[in-house]
Design a protein around this nucleic acid. Sequence first.
DNA 1: AACTAATCCAACCGCAGTACG
DNA 2: TCGTACTGCGGTTGGATTAGT
Length: 451
Amino acid sequence: MMMMGGNNQMSAQSEDGGSSGDNGMSNGNNGVRGDGMVLKKGPWTTAEDAVLTEYVRVNGEGNWNSIQKNTGLARCGKSCRLRWANHLRPNLKKGHFSPQEERTIIELHAKMGNKWARMAAQLPGRTDNEIKNYWNTRIKRRQRQGLPLYPRDIHPHYSQYPHHLHHNSQPQMLLPAPLPTTATTATSCFSFQTPIMSLHTSMMPSSLHPLHIPHRVSPLNFRYNPRLATTMSSPPNLHSLNSDSTPPPLNSPSGSTPPISSLPSPQNQPPFTTLPLFDYDFFHEKKRFKHDENHGNINNNNNFMLRFLPMENYSNRVALDVASSSSNNLYQPYIDSGLFYPFKTDQDGSSGDGLLEDMLQEAHMLAVKANGGGNEEMPKEMNGTATQQDQEEEEEDYSKLINDDGPTSMGMAINEWCNDSGESSERQPSAITDTENQLALANVQSRGNFP
DNA sequence: AACTAATCCAACCGCAGTACG
DNA sequence: TCGTACTGCGGTTGGATTAGT
């Protein structure tokens, strides 16, 4: 990150540039005092800093306007105060905020909103301007990344509605959705994206998380199990949702009509932004999905998309968000609506190993089918003909996928995401109740834009 | 290497509150 | 009570730097 070197960079620059006096933001707008003295604007020089520092050392803070009168410093009192407060006063910290400080800022902002000065009072050595800049940068960054402004465990005490477009002191709960984009790669089967906001913001109870793929014990449990779809617990009854606050569930296309047509496309983008958390080689498709090569790139049609939404440490849990379509009855109500499917556990109460893989596998096959394929050879994992070597390769790939420390590693990306968003890995998948699932469902539906 | 976009952050502006004559 | 000066706060600007293409 760029460091301006405290007050020296621009000052030195100003001096080097001849100290024209209007090399700052307000070119040519120097104020003129009543006695005709021209008040300087723009970056401070080291000489000016010295004058100001000496004056404060002798006379103490305050009486800022008198500085200009008594020292001849061509700065208004306001500028002097600001310079002193933000750069010259002792015990100022410089440099990045520590993680603790960042956490404090977030917590304070959740409590008091844009009260920078009050927040600065809680952070020794930090200025309101610094905090304000940090927060504004954070807003932009989080928006860009499609991440929630507040971590899950911090709940703003203010209004639930965003006011950030106007002058106010309300904390920004929600990030405005950037223009939706789709991060696709020429050879990828899927688009992996993150939502514009976390569902644990104002849109739903903070403790609610709709997305879970439970604990994966071992890559050995990684094989497709056709029975799984019929043994998983049923999704919650959509019609039981409160119609006052929830749009009616979106019907799936008729059984005879492939639901693919309703999928997001460049003309029908989902309301979430793209984040390149997961690079193209995310799911070793060249191996698992190598038969794609026979049928072109299904992604070219943009009729198939998975959203992969990490919410907790990937080593144990992964949240999968499916915004695609499926003819599978199990997923139908959710997938056709572009809804989140809250994976919980296998019906037998086990940890649900292989659900993600199963989902991807199935989704892939559906996509191939939707593109006129479907007669190709089933992946070995699907038809049960995988050899020991196949399995070992699979395990190796998956192990890489999860554990690789490289920059394209999904595990890294997810961990980064978790760290950045302050997500906790503590919540157990089993803690997700059907009620929460329904709330999540209603929430996603209320976001609209999905077919 | 050159150009552009994105980011950072110092410094500005306007407004509001307060003190004081 | 009013007017003025001072101070503090929050929002905005734009130059410098860095990152990306």
